[in-house]
């Protein structure tokens, strides 16, 4: 259902609130048919909130966005699909495990997709989120250092 809507009706995602409405309806559906999934999403949120410098907010295309220094490094849709920004090398090595997939839309990017199917997946999702967080922090730090060097020169 989710992939069908994304594939066939994805062009509607820029209509204000429509994607958020769709995600809220998925959340309602999951609350009825698989409430434990919402607990797993909460676990992910709490895990990310413990990482210094992060914020959790609404994702513009529905779901929960995880940000570091105001920049998104991952988001989770209410059907348990976690999209995480890594880099291509890391993505390539992780894909060998067979647990993650290309991002459901941006196949040739550093983004990956991972579905929460059971409680054990939460731990792996947290591991992936930590990788993405570290990457985002390193990137931010190198930008800061570059700015400092630039200002000293």
């Amino acid at each position: 259902m989710f992939s069908f809507v994304v594939r066939k009706l994805g062009f509607l995602k820029d209509i204000p609130l429509l994607a958020i409405l769709f995600d809220s309806l998925m959340r309602l559906w999951m609350f009825i048919v698989k409430p434990e999934l919402l607990h797993w999403i909460d676990d992910l949120e709490e895990n990310v909130e413990r990482m210094p410098g992060t914020t959790v907010g609404i994702h513009k295309y529905g779901g929960t966005a995880f940000n570091y220094s105001g920049k998104e490094f991952a988001h989770v849709h209410s059907n348990g699909l976690v999209d995480i920004l890594l880099n291509k090398e890391l993505k390539k090595s992780l894909m060998m495990d067979g647990k993650i997939k290309d991002h459901h839309l941006f196949k040739n990017s550093g983004w990956i997709s991972f579905y929460l199917h059971n409680k054990q997946d939460v731990a792996y999702a947290c591991y992936l989120l930590k990788k993405a967080y570290d990457r985002a922090r390193e990137k931010q730090n190198s930008v800061r250092q570059a700015l400092i060097v630039q200002s000293l020169q």
Partner: peptide, 20 residues
Amino acid sequence: SPLIFGFVIAGAFIGRSMFK
């Protein structure tokens, strides 16, 4: 009801983000 449920849930999560 889908509109009511959908937008109330969306509003609650938007609100949570706003007040954080």
